[in-house]
C-alpha cells in the first residue's frame, strides 16, 4: 500500500512538472504550428535570474516572481528575434532560427556568467521531507503537485473564461478567421509566448529545486521531455500535452523501478524510440487536436 502511494506521489510530482513543460511548448505550437527549439532556454533564463538576484536580500517569493517575469520576457523576445522575421517565409527557417536563438542564449550564459554550475537560492522547505501514511517523500514533490494543480486550474480558467483565452483557442484552429473578427495577431502570438514563458518560469523553480543549481545546458532536458510528452499526447491538444506529461512520468517511473541497471542508462533511447514509433503509427497522438481548416 505504502509502495503504491509512494509510486503515485512520484508519478504525480514528476508528471506535473512534465505536463507544465509540455503545455508551454504546445501553447505556441498550437497557434503557430511552429516548434520553439529555444523553449528550454526560458527555463535557463529563469534559473540565472534567480542566481543573479540571490544577493539582493529580497524574499524568495519576490526573486521567484522576478525570475518568472524574466522567462516571460525571454519568451516574447524569442518571438521578436527568431519567429517574426522569418515566420512568413518557411517552416524550416523558423526551426533553424529558434535553434540558433537557443544556442545564442546558452552561449551568452557561458560567456557572461560561467560554464560552471551556479547555485540558486531555495527556500528551506524544498530540502525538507514529509512523512505520512507510512510514506517519506521530499516536501518538494508535494509542492510540485500543488503548484501544478494551481497552474493548470488557472490556465484552464484563462482559456475557457476570458476573451483572450477564447480568442487564443480560436486562433489555434483558424488564425485568419480570428483576425477577421478583430483579434489582433500580434497580441495572440505575444500572449502565447508570454504564457509559454510563465509556465517555463514556474517549471524552472520546480526543476532547479531538484538540483539546486543552474548551468547553461539546463534547458535541454526539459525541452526533450516536452517533445516526448507532446508527441505522446498529441502535438496540438492542450489537454493532450498535460496527459502526455503524466503518461511519460508513469513510463519513466516504471522503467526506473523495473529496468535492470545496465539497461537503465539506455532509458532515453527507449523513450525516444517510443516517440518515433508514436509519430509513425499515430501521428496525432493520444488526443487529437482541434480540427484544422474548415468544415462545410
Amino acid at each position: 500500500m505504502s509502495f503504491f502511494l509512494q509510486f503515485t506521489i512520484d508519478v504525480l510530482a514528476l508528471g506535473g512538472a512534465y505536463a507544465l513543460m509540455a503545455l508551454g511548448l504546445v501553447i505556441v505550437y498550437g497557434i503557430l504550428r511552429l516548434v520553439n527549439f529555444a523553449y528550454g532556454e526560458l527555463i535557463m533564463v529563469a534559473g540565472y535570474s534567480m542566481y543573479l538576484t540571490s544577493g539582493s536580500g529580497w524574499p524568495w517569493l519576490v526573486m521567484a516572481a522576478v525570475a518568472v517575469l524574466m522567462a516571460m520576457l525571454a519568451g516574447i523576445a524569442t518571438d521578436y528575434v527568431a519567429f517574426r522575421p522569418v515566420r512568413a517565409k518557411s517552416v524550416t527557417a523558423v526551426l533553424i532560427t529558434s535553434f540558433a536563438f537557443s544556442t545564442l542564449l546558452q552561449n551568452a550564459a557561458l560567456l557572461f556568467i560561467s560554464p560552471r554550475p551556479r547555485n540558486v537560492p531555495l527556500p528551506e522547505i524544498f530540502s525538507e521531507t514529509v512523512s505520512f501514511a507510512g510514506v517519506i517523500t521530499p516536501a518538494r514533490n508535494l509542492i510540485t503537485i500543488a503548484a501544478t494543480g494551481v497552474l493548470l486550474a488557472l490556465f484552464s480558467w484563462l482559456m475557457r473564461r476570458t476573451v483572450l483565452g477564447i480568442a487564443m483557442r480560436a486562433a489555434a484552429t483558424n488564425f485568419t478567421m480570428a483576425r477577421m473578427l478583430g483579434v489582433p495577431a500580434n497580441l495572440i502570438i505575444s500572449s502565447a509566448f508570454a504564457i509559454s514563458g510563465l509556465l517555463a518560469g514556474v517549471v524552472a523553480m520546480l526543476w532547479i529545486g531538484r538540483i539546486g543549481a543552474v548551468v547553461p545546458g539546463i534547458g535541454l532536458g526539459p525541452l526533450l521531455i516536452a517533445f516526448i510528452a507532446t508527441v505522446i499526447g498529441g502535438m496540438r491538444s492542450l489537454q493532450g500535452a498535460v496527459l502526455g506529461g503524466f503518461v511519460l512520468a508513469f513510463i519513466d517511473t516504471t522503467l526506473n523501478f523495473t529496468l535492470p541497471q545496465d539497461l537503465l542508462k539506455f532509458r532515453d533511447a527507449f523513450t525516444f524510440s517510443l516517440v518515433i514509433a508514436i509519430l509513425l503509427w499515430r501521428p496525432e497522438g493520444l488526443i487529437k487536436g482541434p480540427a484544422s481548416g474548415q468544415r462545410t
Binding site: 476573451v163 477564447i166 480568442a167 483557442r169 480560436a170 484552429t173 483558424n174 478567421m177 480570428a178 473578427l181 478583430g182 483579434v183 482541434p290 480540427a291 474548415q294 468544415r295 462545410t296
Partner: peptide, 19 residues
C-alpha cells in the same frame, strides 16, 4: 468556407464576434 470555430461552443463563437 463558413469558418465557425468548431471546438468553441456556439456561445463562445458569438462572444468572439463581439471582440
Amino acid at each position: 468556407t463558413r469558418d465557425v470555430f468548431p471546438d468553441l461552443t456556439v456561445d463562445e463563437n458569438l462572444q468572439l464576434g463581439a471582440y
